[in-house]
Design a protein around this nucleic acid. Structure first.
Lengths: 258, 258
DNA sequence: CTTTAGCTTTACGCGCCGGTAGAATGGCTA
DNA sequence: TAGCCATTCTACCGGCGCGTAAAGCTAAAG
């Protein structure tokens, strides 16, 4: 408003543009026109260009794009986690990546989608847990415990907040419906394990619905209080909770099966 | 912007202004200048005015003010509950009361305070539960159960959402500190009951901290899924959860103490 | 009748933020 | 060299929503 409008870049665009999160670790720098250091002999072998498909290069770029997109979503997750969805602006997310807002929009179509992607990333871990547990040869209670451990880890992950606290009201009806479906899938999975446990005798007879609510609730709640760099990992917390759930509060005549 | 500015009220202000929530049921209508129906002999006896303190009337008014303020807070709680804090505008709250926004501001200073008041209203029930439980002559496990029942009821109440999901990031530092202190008080209360239970033998030895997290978490989570007009009340849900917590998942050699 | 005090309204200011237009940059291909 | 395409930038718009100024209405007090 106050300053004139330098339409043409006047040479002070030297901000390093990083768009990757640590765990990905490839650190593709976004191109910036800082002075090239020498002839810039690219250290990576040129990967037999010309030979093989000419699309190879563009496929490479596509991979890059995927990586950067992931970084955007991760950055969003971290920001949501720290400040909440509504208190996070897209400028915040862009700033965390040392990039400007339109760049973010180049990778995702809007804020809502960002939240949705974070949710999906978070819940995928839990779905995987169910798949693995299904393959396990063990009584249902053991399989349930395996799921709950991974569940706890997922909730304590950087996507935990998004997975657990994404609110219907912040999403368009159809995205909300997707999320609801996935949540329901998880819930049904737990109930199923409970029922199977009651049947195979590894779990004390109980109301599967309410028990599932109780179990999932206590684990979900972790997202409200857990902060990284705490002394325990998510899986450890889940382990502690499982101990409570298994034996209950009532003093038991010692069974001491261990 | 488009229309002229009718500075003077032009007679179409016939909107009935109600500022009370059902449970309060006094239904004091805010004054509005709709055509008076006849001579408007006020049906309430004039309450021996002139006699007694001349301040009687203004005290009466003060009471009214309290009632209306409560109605504002209740309306806010319901709106937050339904649409979330950030998706609720003060215009929404005002509209729910059939009043305009500045009227709301006449009773509370800002949106943040509204959230805070809802939180306090919600948590007060739990604090009361602790006070009552303390007076109880019973083993700690029973006292704990009594608290948890009321806890569940509170979380499922209309203030449950606010109590449980008020986020630090939405509040000024000092209000956030207040809330944190109250939450901590509750947490410590549960841990204390657990410790006492372990000592008096009514509770199986456990880690009070993690156990408290597990119990409170599952109950808190009720606020995420419970909607009124569900088949169960909050206390009933708590009861079901308690059943899980007490005996645990492991199949038990029948104790059948009932 | 006049004044005062309590309550409510109309009308508006203003900052923040989601989202976009369009230009610039630079590597790759032809 | 010329041109294309992917990527990023600067600059901006529009609207929503919190909060306020100031005036109007009503009932009671003087």
């Amino acid at each position: 408003m106050v300053q004139g409008r330098p339409r043409v870049n006047d040479g002070r665009r030297d901000r390093p543009a990083i768009l990757t999160a640590e765990p990905i670790a490839i650190r593709t720098e976004m191109p910036s026109n800082r002075p090239k250091a020498g002839a810039q002999i690219l250290p990576l072998p040129a990967r037999e260009r010309s030979a093989a498909s000419p699309w190879r290069a563009s496929r490479e770029r596509l991979h890059d794009r995927e990586v950067k997109r992931d970084a955007v979503i991760r950055a969003a997750a971290r920001a949501f986690n720290r400040k909440g969805y509504h208190n996070t602006s897209l400028d915040d997310i862009a700033a965390a990546l040392e990039v400007t807002k339109p760049t973010v929009y180049y990778y995702v179509s809007n804020k809502e989608q960002l939240l949705f992607e974070c949710f999906v990333a978070g819940i995928e871990g839990i779905r995987a847990a169910f798949r693995e547990a299904r393959a396990l040869e063990a009584p249902a209670r053991e399989r349930l415990k395996a799921v709950l451990r991974r569940y706890g880890a997922a909730v304590a992950s950087e996507f935990g907040w998004c997975m657990v606290r994404a609110e219907d009201q912040d999403l368009s009806p159809d995205m909300s419906a997707h999320i609801k479906a996935m949540k329901s899938e998880i819930d049904q999975g737990i109930r199923r394990l409970l029922r199977e446990g009651v049947q195979d005798g590894s779990i004390h007879p109980c109301d599967p619905k309410m028990t599932a609510f109780a179990l999932a609730g206590s684990l979900n709640w972790i997202a409200h209080w857990y902060r990284e760099s705490q002394s325990m990992t998510g899986a450890e917390i889940a382990e502690a909770f499982i101990a409570v759930f298994e034996s209950g509060l009532e003093p038991r005549p010692q069974i001491s099966s261990e």
